[in-house]
Design a protein around this nucleic acid. Sequence first.
DNA 1: AAAATTCTTGACCGAATGGTCAGGGTGCAT
DNA 2: ATGCACCCTGACCATTCGGTCAAGAATTTT
Lengths: 211, 211
Amino acid sequence: MNPDTAPVRKQNKRREKEVVILQAAEKIFAEEGFGGATMQLIADAADLPKANVHYYFSTKEELYRQVVSNIFDVWLQAAGSFEVADGPAEGIGAYIEAKMEISRTRPAGSKVWASEVMHGAPIIQDYLETTLVEWTDSRIKAIDAWIEAGLMDPISPRHLLYMIWATTQHYADFGHQIKTLNRNAALSDAEWQVAKASVKQIILKGIGVTI
Amino acid sequence: MNPDTAPVRKQNKRREKEVVILQAAEKIFAEEGFGGATMQLIADAADLPKANVHYYFSTKEELYRQVVSNIFDVWLQAAGSFEVADGPAEGIGAYIEAKMEISRTRPAGSKVWASEVMHGAPIIQDYLETTLVEWTDSRIKAIDAWIEAGLMDPISPRHLLYMIWATTQHYADFGHQIKTLNRNAALSDAEWQVAKASVKQIILKGIGVTI
DNA sequence: AAAATTCTTGACCGAATGGTCAGGGTGCAT
DNA sequence: ATGCACCCTGACCATTCGGTCAAGAATTTT
């Protein structure tokens, strides 16, 4: 039917199927943990026979590795919010905003990441030691520069970053608890706005930045 | 040998053995997750035959339930820091301090709790809906009273609590990541003091409380 | 159109897991 | 000393899991 039934088709189709499996895997890994997840559950979630999943991803660990890797990429992308800022109000504010947005749109991914780190990062330890260390060091320097410029209080940049990570990811990782405490209802749009504003306000004021 | 070889002995011995198993289980559940943990691993960690573990805890789920329940108790105990305070500086400050201390001394427990909530709290949902909801509501009222008394900024008490939970527990749940970012060394005593002070300072200043 | 490549899948396998149980050991009360 | 209740554990079992495979279905290339 389509004139573009060309050699690319097959590659595209493969990629599409991989994406379907990866999404299903992200969901199941988040819900069940690595040990609790089974290839059968993932296959069911992807609506495919188990053997077919194994055709695209040879082992459970290989599939898990790609899921975690994908999240790490998303995470790094949000980190870009930092780059284009010339002051803490904008830089840190946008970063918090970006991370809150990820918690809202990719909660399963956040949980997989949390689970991986909590269990000692057996799969992505090398990423932590290279990419994450570099990124963190560079951000610390940027924050230190802001401090020296008198744009914010002389707090520990490292612990500030931890606080931002912890608080923003909490809305994904502990989403179930938050929902339970919210009369068993997921946060509405308006409630998300309040959450974002609260987090930004407390942290920015806490480090001496006026908005 | 001991004169107190009395009728109590047997009960004590039972309790002692249960504690050994519970500690081993907490460690293994934290490291491997519920699905990844095996009764054999727990038995090995407790230095007991697997069948003996099953003698004290009939099923894996029963053992897990008690581990999670224990953490919840610790958690509630720390919440007491709130009670005896007549202002946010003392109340919230002490609460942060207490939660940081738990993260330091019971990291495995914190991880088990996080894992349980992340997977939808299949075991302790009832605790969340009753005890935790009540505790949270009562704390929110206390904070609201402080706000009305002009002792702190009019922020959302709910999101403040989430931030405190997230940040303090982060030091346990993401301890591995923090260690990796700390030149692969666990936080020293001095570094822990910096962490505690940083968290307290940013949050307290962030909500308009002067220390 | 036919050869070659890639996909698809039901059936199957060895290994591991949660849990059981029978039979023996240990310590306490009488 | 003897009976009794609790404690211990090696051997065992049914089930489930990750992963394999062979044979066929689709699709692309020649």
